[in-house]
Simulated assay, not measured.
Amino acid sequence: MKYLKKIILFLTLLIFYIVIINVWVVYQAKDSTYNNMALIPKNKVGLVLGASKFTLNGNINLYYKYRLEAAYQLYKSEKIEFILISGDNGRKSYDEPTDFKNDLIKKGIPKNKIFLDYAGFRTLDSVVRSKEIFGLNSITIISQEFHNERAIYLAKNFKINAIGYNAKDINGRYGIKTKLREYIARAKASIDVLFNVQPKFLGEKIEIK
């Protein structure tokens, strides 16, 4: 019985911490995300946070599709000059940045306006590398709103001036599962900030021009 009470107490505190962190992340990103193209300020570079192109059943991943479209619209509306795509390329058969690049080129974005970060294994890596590798102190982050909020929270803690353009979100069962995982991801992000966790890889600097 004593151990059961300890487990219940631990779970209660854990849930409380997750809820508080979620509220704090939302607060940190307040007034920094945009749904309206006309209202978002201009930035030199838009940072697209990576996603797999296809789901496990072979269908197009809507998170990918909507981020791609958001990046395209920002560029065509002259809200950004360059697009930096940061994603996972941890194995030969999986290359998020190149998938985005190829599809953006098909939509008419010039090749020389697209830069790739192959070591964006997670959001922290993508955000911090945008500053440490690509020299960006100000960026427009492109993802769904829940993801943008966490990325902006991380950016603020690493002294990066970030705003977010919210790509279309996904509803239904899949969307709910993603948002539930986001609660855990935000708690993990807060721990990373607390312990000043750095990207898995850094490397040589790349100038975007």
Rank of each mutant, 00 (worst) to 15 (best):
D99M: 09
D99W: 06
N102V: 08
D103A: 08
D103C: 09
L104I: 11
K107L: 15
G108N: 10
P110T: 04
N112E: 15
F115R: 01
D117L: 07
Y118W: 09
Y118Q: 05
T123N: 02
L124H: 02
D125F: 06
S126E: 03
V128Y: 04
R129D: 11
S130I: 13
K131P: 06
I133W: 03
G135M: 11
L136N: 04
L136E: 05
I141C: 04
I141W: 01
I142G: 02
I142F: 05
Q144T: 10
F146Y: 13
F146V: 12
F146D: 04
H147A: 07
E149V: 05
E149N: 08
I152F: 00
K156W: 01
I160F: 00
A162F: 00
N166C: 09
I170A: 10
I170R: 03
Y174R: 13
T178S: 11
T178R: 05
L180E: 12
L180P: 03
R181N: 15
R181Q: 13
Y183D: 15
I184S: 08
A185L: 13
R186L: 13
S190D: 10
I191N: 00
D192I: 08
F195G: 05
V197Y: 03
P199E: 06
F201S: 14
L202Q: 06
E204R: 02
E204M: 07
I206M: 03
I208E: 06
